[in-house]
């Protein structure tokens, strides 16, 4: 029984050690600015197409689904309001984070994992650089900057998607839709909608890098860590989302 529990407990410990180091390194020199910019490009610009598409269609789908329910109350006019609130508070941050986790947690795990199994991580240390500082911290900083921005883009495109449905199918006027959407949002919604991606960024970057660094067993091991990183990051995004929401929505 103890032998069964040992690996996961050790893994969790390793995860927190790595996270601690990566976060401490944020304030420490040397800063690898080139690596941060490169990562912002791969994570941010690279994820833009899927974030744009998922954002747009999730907004449109939500508008469609909500219309059905709103019709029974004769409150189709509130479509903008509902789309805005669900998107900004929940769907935007979570869907964007899931997309980026699928793309980048797995990407980081496979990249760092291959470096691990080909002794590049050892070489990095042997040549005088700290792999946490050179690989993990830039990815963490880049994700923490880029994910909130991606979420804003997804939120906006979701609203546009909802608007398309409202305008073309429900025959609402633009003013009707955008006014109700705009007025529905409070500062706390925006805050909640931005603190979430910021927190998810830590999950995405640290889980991805952790599984990369833990990789053993050649190319096969790289495949294993890649899958694990993506699955674990996605699950933790949902768990963390629950707790952050619980904090904001006092019942």
């Amino acid at each position: 029984m103890l032998d069964l529990l040992k690996p996961p407990v050790l893994s969790v410990q390793e995860f927190f050690v790595l996270s601690g180091r990566a976060i401490r390194n944020v304030a420490r020199r040397p800063h690898y600015v080139d690596d941060i910019i490169l990562q912002m490009d791969t994570i941010g610009v690279g994820s833009l197409p899927i974030v744009v598409l998922t954002g747009f269609f999730s907004g449109a789908v939500m508008a469609l689904q909500l219309t059905k329910a709103l019709m029974t109350y004769g409150a189709v006019g509130k479509t903008g309001e509902l789309v805005a609130i669900t998107l900004v508070r929940e769907m935007g941050p979570v869907l964007t984070a899931l997309m980026v986790a699928g793309r980048n947690s797995s990407g980081m795990a496979s990249e760092i994992g291959s470096m691990k199994v080909t002794e590049q991580i050892d070489a990095m240390r042997a040549l005088g650089t700290d792999p946490t500082q050179k690989l993990v911290t830039p990815r963490l900083i880049a994700t923490a900057i880029v994910l909130p921005l991606l979420t804003i883009i997804a939120d906006f495109l979701g609203l546009v998607g909802g608007f398309m449905i409202a305008y073309f199918l429900l025959k609402m006027t633009p003013a009707q839709y955008w006014n109700s959407a705009w007025q529905a949002l409070e500062y706390s919604d925006l805050f909640q909608g931005l603190i979430k991606p910021f927190a998810f960024a830590f999950v995405i970057a640290l889980v991805g890098c952790h599984y990369g660094m833990q990789t053993t067993g050649g190319t096969q091991g790289v495949g294993r860590s890649t899958t694990r990183a993506m699955v674990v990051a996605s699950v933790w995004i949902f768990v963390l989302d629950f707790f952050i929401t619980r904090f904001f929505v006092g019942v």
Partner: peptide
């Protein structure tokens, strides 16, 4: 470690960097 040179089994080169950047790595970092 700066006083030790290590050659890894398969070279241990960084895939993402060119040969020039690989060799320059210890001088830069």
């Amino acid at each position: 470690r700066a006083r030790i040179g290590m050659v890894f089994q398969e070279g241990g080169l960084f895939d993402s960097l060119t040969v020039e950047e690989n060799v320059a790595y210890p001088l830069r970092y």
